[in-house]
Simulated scan of single mutants.
Amino acid sequence: MTKEIPVPFYDSAKQSNPAWDEFIQTLRYKDLIMHLVRRDVTARYKRSVLGIAWTMLNPLGMMLILTVVFSQVFSTIDGYAAYILSGLLVWNFFSQSTVSGINSMVWGGDLFRRIYFPRSVYAISAIGTGIVNLLLSMIPYVIVSLAVGKPLTLNFFWVVVPIILISMFTLGLALIIASVGVRFPDVVEMFNIFLFAWMYLTPIIYPEDIVPAWLLAFFKFNPMYHLIKLFREPIFYGQPLYPQLVGICTLIAVFTLVLGWIIFSRMTDEIAYRS
């Protein structure tokens, strides 16, 4: 007599804690996340002659253009090319990873309905791909920094902390926008436009000290203002991270990630059928 093998049954209605269950399931699919990151990094430049070098050339090209245009205007900044590039590295990582994560979750409904896996896997893999590209882009930054007379210090290695916090904030925001975008797809398109304005409301190509005091007060409510400032401290200014700024950025990153994770985990089933 053959023994009947129980068939696993998934019932989302019996989830005790959707956020915790989503987290546990995501840990079980860590190999899939690594595979998606490896696929995205290699496939993006597969047919390109320069291949993955485009990851480094893209921010360099933007830096050269902006340096030529604004170097005389902001000549008070010592090593202006490195100043711009340090901001562009963070912003490119944030904007590209957020948009990639949102699009994969909002428009991936067909695959979601065919096979089960944690929906957050796509968002996390987008962040992972962005981190790889960011680390590769640090190579030309080091060269540019040395070329413009901004030698690196041992504090450079503190950059790991802002990269982790920026990644957490990016993931949390992508989960929030994707959750809303599934019900209201126009939000995704509006977010792309908002990103363009957001960039110029953040001190990336201009120094903070030219901003009027009344406007700078509003900048304090801009999360990327604090995160980019934290990123620049060790790599551009060569300074150690000071606790107050780390505390502010940690609060921003943790709050955004936790909020995004809770909202997204409660909508995972709806995302599969609406997207």
Rank of each mutant, 00 (worst) to 15 (best):
I210V: 15
V161H: 02
T67F: 14
I33K: 04
P162E: 12
I127Y: 01
F231M: 15
F169K: 00
E270D: 14
Y80M: 13
W158G: 10
N155D: 12
I262T: 08
D209V: 11
I164S: 08
I65C: 06
P118L: 03
V37W: 08
L88M: 12
V160S: 13
M1T: 11
E208F: 02
F156G: 07
A126L: 09
K46H: 14
K30C: 11
V254K: 09
N155V: 07
D21W: 02
V99P: 06
P118E: 03
I166N: 02
F23A: 10
F117A: 05
A213D: 10
Y242F: 09
F93L: 14
V148P: 10
T153L: 04
A147L: 15
F23D: 03
K46E: 14
H35E: 06
W54F: 09
M56I: 12
P243H: 09
I52W: 07
I24A: 03
R39L: 14
M224C: 12
G51F: 05
K150I: 15
L245A: 10
G51W: 03
A81E: 07
F231G: 06
V188K: 08
Q72F: 06
L36Y: 06
L165W: 06
S48I: 08
Y45M: 08
P118W: 01
Y242S: 09
S167N: 01
A82P: 04
T250A: 13
K150C: 07
A217V: 12
L32P: 02
T42G: 02
T153R: 03
Y45V: 07
I52H: 02
T42Y: 01
T2R: 15
R44F: 02
T2Q: 15
V90L: 12
S48H: 09
L64F: 13
S75L: 05
T268L: 05
Y83K: 13
L50N: 05
Y225P: 12
F74T: 01
F9Y: 14
P162R: 11
L36S: 07
L173G: 02
Y10I: 10
L175P: 11
I124L: 15
P185M: 05
I252A: 04
V68I: 14
F9V: 15
F117L: 09
G149A: 07
V49A: 14
S100H: 03
K220E: 14
A13G: 10
P59L: 09
F70E: 06
M1C: 06
F184L: 14
E189W: 02
P8A: 06
F157C: 09
M168H: 04
V148L: 12
V68T: 13
S16C: 07
T129E: 03
S120Y: 02
G79D: 06
Y122C: 09
V69K: 04
L201N: 12
G108A: 06
R47Y: 13
I139Q: 03
Y242W: 01
M190R: 11
I262L: 14
F74E: 00
A174V: 11
L257R: 02
F255K: 08
L257E: 01
L89K: 00
I262K: 12
P18H: 03
F264W: 05
M56C: 14
L152Q: 11
H226L: 07
N58H: 15
G51V: 11
R266Q: 14
R28W: 01
I177F: 08
Q239Y: 10
R119S: 06
